[in-house]
């Protein structure tokens, strides 16, 4: 609720040179987090071709411990947990990536307008205040149960609560940049507003947005798994990590690995994303590096 508009724009000056490869070589967090993510992504993309069908039933071999039947054991329908976890990686990465890209794009658009066009500022920011007051998980659960559970509705339901934070970030950058001499020069030279926004303001938002996008990606993967776990997410026939864990609940005391394997995979993935985010923040924006995100 506190107004963050008065804070200085994080990273407004650091947007000059963003070469991901160079950052990865310079920062250990980005390097190792990126390496782990790369491995997970390779598993997610190519893994499904090498493991058995994640939906194949094998009732005779149900609830088998890891090692005896498949690497991660089997679930209550005899499905191979390893194969399901590999396939689930795809869902998590897709959700994380899509939510981050869409939330940043929409937030960027609204934030540029709010920051630069005074008339729209109050309207957009009050809307964002309202949206921020609604607990994200509840909002997502309600939207999904109303619109029906599909991959698309889940992504939209996770995107909407993430938008306000992006808008606030972009707006705060715009508010500082618009006072810069080069923007004043552009205005006095008669440059049109959209051109000023795209050519002079937008580049300054890129560095903080990349950092923000990684955090959104991590939190989206967590939210997706929570929704799946609560039975309010992606339809149960798709083996997402949240769904696998949701199905493992009933037999947790007998077969805890059905929850532990996807849980550990999820935690490692999110941790890798967050470590990359912290590394990017430290590299792109030394000024806020010592504070929290």
């Amino acid at each position: 609720m506190t107004d963050q508009a008065t804070q200085p724009a994080p990273g407004a000056a650091a947007a000059k040179d963003i070469s991901l490869a160079r950052i990865a070589l310079r920062n250990r967090g980005v390097f190792w987090g990126g390496a782990v993510l790369l491995v997970i992504a390779l598993f997610a993309i190519f893994g499904p071709f090498f493991v058995q069908d994640p939906t194949a039933l094998n009732p005779i071999n149900r609830l088998k411990p890891p090692g005896s039947e498949g690497l991660f054991g089997t679930d209550m329908l005899g499905r191979d947990v390893f194969s399901r976890v590999i396939n689930g990686a795809q869902v998590s990465l897709v959700v994380g990536l899509f939510v981050a890209v869409i939330a940043v794009a929409l937030g960027l658009f609204l934030g540029l307008i709010a920051g630069y066009i005074r008339l729209m500022d109050a309207l957009i920011m009050r809307l964002m205040d309202g949206l921020m007051s609604i607990p994200a998980i509840l909002l997502a659960i309600a939207m999904i149960s109303l619109a029906g559970a599909t991959l698309t509705t889940v992504v939209i339901a996770i995107v909407i609560p993430e938008i306000p934070r992006v808008v606030r970030l972009v707006r705060s950058v715009v508010l500082t940049v618009r006072e810069e001499p080069y923007v004043e020069a552009a205005i006095s030279a008669g440059t049109r507003v959209p051109t000023i926004l795209v050519r002079h303001v937008l580049p300054n938002t890129i560095a903080p947005l990349i950092v923000q996008a990684t955090y959104i990606c991590g939190s989206a993967m967590l939210t997706e798994s929570i929704l799946g776990f609560l039975g309010a997410g992606i339809p149960p026939e798709i083996p997402s990590w949240g769904n696998i864990m949701s199905e493992g609940r009933t037999f947790f005391q007998l077969t805890p690995w059905i929850i532990f394997f996807p849980g550990i995979c999820l935690a490692v993935t999110v941790l890798a994303v967050n470590v990359v985010g912290d590394g990017l923040r430290d590299t792109l924006d030394p000024r806020i590096a010592r504070n929290m995100r």
Binding site: G218, L222, S225, I226, F229, M245, F252, Q253, P256, I259, F260, G263, I264, L266, A267, V270, L271, N274, V275, D278
Partner: peptide, 29 residues
């Protein structure tokens, strides 16, 4: 503080249940 943000609440819950309720038996499930 980085790790705390990365483990989903329910996974943590089940890990603690596994340790304290199922293995050590000191707290209820």
């Amino acid at each position: 503080s980085v790790g705390g943000f990365s483990v989903p609440v329910f996974v943590l819950g089940y890990i603690l249940i596994y340790i304290f309720s199922m293995t050590l038996g000191v707290l209820p499930v």
